[in-house]
Write a protein that binds this DNA or RNA. Structure first.
Lengths: 194, 194
DNA sequence: ATTTACAGCACTAATGATTACAGGTCTTTA
DNA sequence: TAAAGACCTGTAATCATTAGTGCTGTAAAT
């Protein structure tokens, strides 16, 4: 109980409530806004999350593989260490994942001439194409709907998203104590290696 | 390749709504807007993606586990089959994952009384708490920044995100042929279990 | 200028855990 | 009886870590 009674007092968090268009701004007070923003954000994330999952299946790419390939695409030419840092994995893990990707000819490596310790990862044409063609099914519908909006609204959404992206970029996620797992499972529940 | 052309035509249509500071106005005409929206969207996704990654580590939850727990939280009381459908995994996989989660007392199962073939998954209090407390480190910074904005801007962002969420909710992701993997790896490249 | 010591970067090897799937089994429902 | 739903094998692949190796770059010492 109680886990379901959560504050869906607004914006029906229950995905399939089929709002369609309703969208009450609810400009009550500022305190309430951020919660709704987070809810909306979660919905957006979830949609793309599921999309990624499906993509993985169809393309034969696993989550980390996809994540790493996207990182390479976004950052251009990056060293293995930088990738590991960006995706929060160890160098060794990234290396083995890149091995598989390189074996499938989706990425290739080039040893740097300036600093021969470094290795730069690139997407092959096939890899870039895979990544480029993949998001299409999601994009196409999205674009169609997006372009049917008034221009002022497009501009508004764009500004809003950039704003949010900037906010999230800025904060230092790394330094977070986060949770104490121990409190949850002091029982025989799980493992006690750490 | 080169799917990332910029297609900068010209003729900035103005539309200057520059709210506060940074955020280069980038004179966006309607044609160019959606690309930037997608870019911004990707940045948002990426940020939360990394956050989830970190969260997984700290909380001892793997990606699929987290995804499934979120699904349960969002949909309330769901059958195993529904979960499998939502997250695009087989029933068997969901079953094993739920086994582990149940063993840690983060979820529990209840056999339906109406249709005794079905089993409903729920979050335990501990599981819900884990999920609820988890996003905090991200939220705190985010909330702080968000609440420092003008109210009109908060409302704007909220409306924009809801708009986007609705758009993505609507489209049917499932029916997507997507890619032909075979074209990428005709070589000895990978596996040929099929 | 050469040599030496130390740090940085990527790779390898070995290991444990998780994921994902294809079978088969059991119970319930129609 | 047949179908649906969930569960239980066993197997293959991937993920993720630690420890160790080799090569490169930099700086100090000779």
């Amino acid at each position: 109980m109680a886990s379901r009674e959560r504050a869906h007092s607004v914006t029906g968090a229950g995905a399939e409530s089929s709002p369609g268009r309703a969208l009450a701004p609810d400009r009550s007070n500022a305190v309430n806004n951020y919660e709704q923003v987070l809810v909306a954000l979660r919905r957006v994330i979830r949609a793309t999350d599921l999309h990624s999952k499906r993509l993985s299946k169809h393309a034969g790419l696993t989550g980390p593989q996809l994540l790493i390939m996207r990182t390479i695409r976004d950052l251009g030419e990056v060293t293995i260490g930088t990738i590991a840092d960006k995706v929060s994995l160890s160098q060794a893990t990234v290396t083995t994942i890149l091995d598989r990707l390189e074996h499938r000819k989706l990425v290739y490596r080039v040893r740097s001439t300036k600093d021969k310790r470094k290795v730069h990862a690139h997407l092959t044409e096939a890899g870039a194409e895979l990544l480029a063609r993949a998001p299409n099914p999601l994009q196409e519908d999205f674009i169609k709907k997006f372009q049917s909006l008034d221009e002022w609204e497009q501009t508004m959404i764009l500004a809003a998203l950039q704003r949010v992206a900037n906010m999230m970029d800025a904060d230092d996620i790394d330094a977070s104590p986060v949770l104490t797992v121990g409190s949850v499972l002091n029982d025989d529940g799980w493992k006690e290696k750490g």
